[in-house]
Amino acid sequence: MNWQETISFFGNCMPKSIGRALASQQEGTVREIRMRAGGRGSLLTHKGELVCTGLMSQGQIAQTAEALCDHALYARAEEQRQGFVTLRGGHRMGLCGRVITQGQSVRALREISSICVRVAGQWHGAADELLPHMIDEDGRVRSTLVIGMPGMGKTTMLRDACRRLSEAGIHMCVVDERSEIAAMCAGVAQLEVGPNTDVLDGCCKEAGMRWMLRAMSPDVLVTDELGSTLDVQAVQEAARSGVAVMATLHGRDMETALSRGMLYQLVRDRIFERYALLDTRQVGRIVSICDEQLRPLASKEAV
């Protein structure tokens, strides 16, 4: 999906004031689109926030959410429970509203009152700095984990690395649980992941990685946002079978990421050979790259 198609998609699905504001923006400048019931829509651009005219009702917000999901929000209940839904083109729509709970778990989301769309972008060259560290002397791909805060470019970097390695003839297999890496639509990747890449779309990481190992004999497995012990087990299984894994993890820095326990387990078992930590302020900037024992290989002073 190019920028014109993105503008057309959002323009059709969102209130006119937002559509007009979007139409005047250049590619790569819009990072977020926000809408609230009883409030005005706004675009978060590189230059700052651009507030649109016209107040929006709750009905309009709900209708917009439905439209953005191609009228299939009902089929995305599991994603909704996690608070966001991935849209056509790989954009991510965060939702707020009235949560219906059962015990401690979220059952459903009703009366959607706020939407935050994070605009996905293809950034060629996002992994330039990372790639030299990912290939060893024998030309083998090293298992790599990208750690960073939300919105700092982890997935963009992962996608670019996948594309570049795939173009180099390495057989990449993507387990795209939330359709954010390849943004598959009718069997075609909307974002470039390379010519030598197979994508398993919408499948949970644990089952997906096993599936890929069994069915597609990958050189490298790519997946986004490790979040549970089951994900870690699947990564361990892949690594033990000799397949390199590229993944991302939420974390402000190594210490906070290690405190989650999951990273500690991965470091202890030396599953990943490289860890790339992203800056907390500048999108896509690597502040340090560490080896399998978390010893820094290259570091930069944060801006």
Binding site: C69, D70, H71, A72, Y74, A75
Partner: peptide
């Protein structure tokens, strides 16, 4: 079974 989008 499939939960398609409404147009589909």
């Amino acid at each position: 079974q499939e939960r398609p989008s409404l147009p589909e």
